[in-house]
Structure formats: C-alpha cells, structure tokens
C-alpha cells in the first residue's frame, strides 16, 4: 500500500505578470515529496476552486503580487465554502500588508508569507498540518 501523498494546488489568481515565486514554492514542495498541481498565471477564483475540487488537494497555496488580495482571497474562501471544501487549507504568499494579513487570517487563511520567507518554513508548516513535521 502506498503512503498517502500530500497534494497541493499552487495557483496564481489575478493579473500578476510573472510567477517566479510560485514556481520556486512548487519546486520546493516537490523536493519535499509532495505532489504539486501547478496551474499557471491569471487564474480566476472559479478556476482555482474547480482545480482544487477535481484534484482533491489537501492544501491550496495562493500567490498574489498585484495587490488584489483583499478582493481575490475572500472570493476564493467563499467559493471554497460553497464547494464544501472545508478541510482544504489555504496558504497565501506574496506582497501582503500586515493589516490585510490579519484580516485574511481571521477570515480563514491558514498562514500568510511575505517576501524572504524560507521555503523550508512553508514545507514544515504544510507537513505540520498532517502530523509529519
């Protein structure tokens, strides 16, 4: 019997022009033995939730640099609730002001990572969710 792999959706909602950060995270999670579904740039909140549902992921990692996080993230959380994906955790990375991060954490985002976060930290946090730290 195979060990259950942690499946992570790495998604970039909104209009960001590049995805270097998201790719670095995807690669780091892969190297930590996780299966990462990477969907590329300019995803709508609907696309993010559809992908999370079809791929049966454990974690959604969002990367947003554009400043649109206060409209995109609540929308994604709302759609996630509607799709009954209650046990799927959302992580957020990007350029998120502290005050906004506080609000989003209250709304249900599991963790918010700013520039300079080590990939090891993200890997450990995700593993921690599954008791594999």
């Amino acid at each position: 019997m195979e060990e259950k792999k942690i499946r992570v959706l790495v998604a970039k909602p909104g209009l960001d022009g590049h995805d270097r950060g998201a790719k670095i995270i995807a690669r780091a999670l892969r190297d930590a033995g996780m299966e990462v579904i990477y969907t590329g740039l300019r995803q709508t909140p609907e696309m993010v939730i559809q992908a999370a549902l079809q791929e049966d992921v454990d974690v959604i990692g969002l990367s947003i640099l554009s400043g649109a996080h206060m409209s995109l993230v609540p929308r994604i959380l709302e759609l996630k609730k509607r799709a009954k994906l209650d046990d799927v955790q959302v992580f957020l990375g990007g350029i998120i002001p502290e005050a906004d991060a506080k609000v989003l954490l209250e709304e249900g985002v599991k963790a918010v990572y700013g520039p300079g976060t080590s990939t090891t930290q993200v890997v450990e946090d995700i593993r921690g969710l599954f008791g594999k730290a």
Partner: peptide, 27 residues
C-alpha cells in the same frame, strides 16, 4: 524526492472551469 510538479492544467485553460469537463492530474 517522490514528489512531482503536475503542470498539464497550465495549457488547459479553456476547459478548466467547464462543468462538463473533469480534469485530473496524476503523478
């Protein structure tokens, strides 16, 4: 590592949120 980056959905934008389509990535 036993991990994988599954990137086929990147090219499947046009069908990604179509209710008649179900896409599943497998490692």
């Amino acid at each position: 590592s036993g991990g994988a980056v599954l990137g086929d959905r990147i090219r499947m934008r046009a069908i990604a949120d179509n209710p008649h389509v179900f896409i599943r990535s497998m490692a």
